[in-house]
Design a protein around this nucleic acid. Sequence first.
DNA 1: AACGGCTATACATACGTATTCAAGGCGGTA
DNA 2: TACCGCCTTGAATACGTATGTATAGCCGTT
Lengths: 341, 341
Amino acid sequence: MTQRRPTSFDIAALAGVSQPTVSRALSGSASVSAQTRRRVLEAAEQLNYKVDKNASGLRRQQAKTLALLFFEESPGAALLNPFYLSLVGPMVRRCAQHGYDLLISIQQLSSDWHVDYEDSRKADGIILLGYGDYLEYRPRLEKLVASGAHFVRWGSAAAGEIGATVASDNEQGGFDATSHLLQQGRRRIAFVGTVDPGSPEFLQRWNGHRRALAAAGIELDERLQVDADPREEAGRRAVEQLIAREAEFDGVFAACDISAIGVMHALHAIGRHVPDDVAVVGFDDIPAALLSSPPLTTVAQDPHQASDALVDAIVTSIECGTATNHVLPVRLKVRESSLSR
Amino acid sequence: MTQRRPTSFDIAALAGVSQPTVSRALSGSASVSAQTRRRVLEAAEQLNYKVDKNASGLRRQQAKTLALLFFEESPGAALLNPFYLSLVGPMVRRCAQHGYDLLISIQQLSSDWHVDYEDSRKADGIILLGYGDYLEYRPRLEKLVASGAHFVRWGSAAAGEIGATVASDNEQGGFDATSHLLQQGRRRIAFVGTVDPGSPEFLQRWNGHRRALAAAGIELDERLQVDADPREEAGRRAVEQLIAREAEFDGVFAACDISAIGVMHALHAIGRHVPDDVAVVGFDDIPAALLSSPPLTTVAQDPHQASDALVDAIVTSIECGTATNHVLPVRLKVRESSLSR
DNA sequence: AACGGCTATACATACGTATTCAAGGCGGTA
DNA sequence: TACCGCCTTGAATACGTATGTATAGCCGTT
C-alpha cells in the first residue's frame, strides 16, 4: 500500500543535484544558489518529502524535543493539579515556536525515577513539574546536574540552589491577598493551608500573609492558622476547626482555590454569608474559581507566562549553555467573594 | 564536563563480546547465553549505558512514540476542554505500559494542518482529539488514510466511517439523564445545548433525550429546546431565554457541565431553587461539577477507559494492522442537583 | 595572461544500532 | 570416528542525514 518513503537521494536525483546539496538547501544554508534551492524545494514538494527525524537526530546528536515530567505523590494524582494542567497547552505552543516538540511523562515522586529521555537522546532538555523542594530528593537533582542534562524546575530556588528554576512570587501573592482583605476592613483573617517545608509554595504564601499583617500592625493569632492540604474537604474542615476553637474571623486567605471553595461551602452550610460575614480569598485562579458562587477572589499565576518562562529557560540552557532563575509576578483578581458592601 | 556517551561498542569491549551481541542481549533475543547476557547487562549498568533512540529508530524504522493531536477552533481554546485535559494523564500512563512515549501537539482546526509526526518518523501513530465530524474536514482524513498513517479519532463513527474511532455512548447518556429526571417526577424538561451536525456529540445527547421523552409518552415542546455552546455564560442565557419564552420547566438537561453550572447560577439569581424548583443534570463530570453548590448530577465519561481504548486501538493498529471502532459506556452520577425531596 | 579569492557543488564519511549471513563449537547418533 | 544439526557468536552492512574537505567555475585585479 504505502510506497517506500522518499529520501534526500530521491530529491537529489529529481532535482539533478547531489544529496548534500539537498540537505543544505532544506536547512537554509547560505551556500546554495537561489535557483538550486528552488529546484530542490520543488522536488521535495512534489515527492512529499519529509526529513527523517531519526536520521537527522542521529547525525546532529539531538532530538529537537523537550520532555515534560510530572511528579506525583500517588499514582493518578499528577494531573489533578489544575494549574499544572493549564500549563500544558501554552507549553506545547511555546515549544513549537522554538522548533521543539514536547514529550510528556509522569513519574512517581517516591520511586527512584529515571530520566531516560535525556540519556537516550529522545529529548534535549527536561522540564520538571511538581518536584517540590523536599530535601530528601535533592541528591537526585545533583545526579541530574552531574550527568550534564539540561533541565528546569518549577518551584522556588530558595531551598536548594540546584539547577535553574522558574516560580511564581508566592510571597508577594500572599502579601497581596491579605493586604486586600485588610483594605476591605477585615481584621481577623484566618490562614488556611499547609505550613511545612515540604510545600515551599504554601510556606511562602504564609510568609506573605504574615508580612501583610505585620505591616498593618496586627498581631498574629495562632488560632487563626489552620492546616489544610489542597482539597475541598480540607477547606470545609478548616472552618469547622475555626468554629471549634471559638476563634472569631471575618476574613479567610486560603493558600489554594480548592480549599477556598471548601471554606465557602462550609460557611454557606452554617449560614455565614460570603462576603458579608466572611471575605474569602484563594490562590491559583483555577477554572472553578470563576464558576463558584460567589465568584472567588484569588491570586492568579499566569500559565502562559509560566510556560513561556520554563520553555525559554530550557531552550536557552540547551542552545546557549546558560541557566538562570526566574520569579514571575502574580496578580490579584478581585471578585465578589471578598468585596464588602 | 560531560564525557562522550557510551555506545554499544563500549559495552561490547567491556563485556568482551561483539557489538551485535550487546544489541541482542539488551533486546532480549533468545540466542544469547544466560552467562553472556549477564556480563553484558553488568557492563551496561556499569557504564550507565542507554540505547540511542535516534539510531535505534533509524535502524528499525520506528519511533516508539505516539502523537496526541488536539484540534482547536480558535487559538488557545484546545486545552480548555476539561474532559480532553483529563485524558492526558491516563493516556501517558497507558502509552508507557505499551512501551511508547507520548508527544503532544495542538493544531488549528481551520488551518490546513500537517501531521509531520508520522511523515517524519517521529511518531508511529496519531491520536486525534477534537476533530469532530465536520464533513468539510473529511478529505483530510481520507488523505491521512491514503498516506498509510496509523491513527485513531475520538468521536462518533456515525457521520463518516473513515478510520478507527473511539467514542462515548452519548445517545445512551442523554437517554439516562432525561430518564433520571423523569423518574424524579419531572415532566417539563428543557434541553440546553447545541444541536447542529458540527457537534455530533451534542446531537447524539439530544437524540437520547428525545428517546427518553418518547418512551415516557411525553411530547416534545420546541420552546424547551435552547441553543447553548459549552460556556457558563451560554447556560445563564439559556435560562433567560426559557423565561422570556414563558416556557414552564421543572427540569434541565444540559449537554455539558459548564453550561449546566451556568444554568444553576441563573436559576439561583432569579430565586428558583435547585433542585426543589428545577432539577439540573449535566454531562461530562468535570471537576467543578463536584465543587458546585449543589453538587451537579451529571453523566460521566470515564477518562481512564477512554484513554486506554484510544491508546490500545492505535497500538493494535500499528502492531497488528487492524483497526476497530469502540463505543464506551457512560455512567450517571446522581448528586444533589437533581434529587427531589 | 596569470593568479588570488570567492561561490557553489560534489565526494566521502560518521552518527549508533539492528539484522542478515556465515562460521565456529559442541554434543549426539550411526 | 565421522558426520549432521543446533546453539551461540562475530563480521559485514544498511538505515538517512549533515558536515568537513576538496574541487570546479567565475570574476576582478595587476
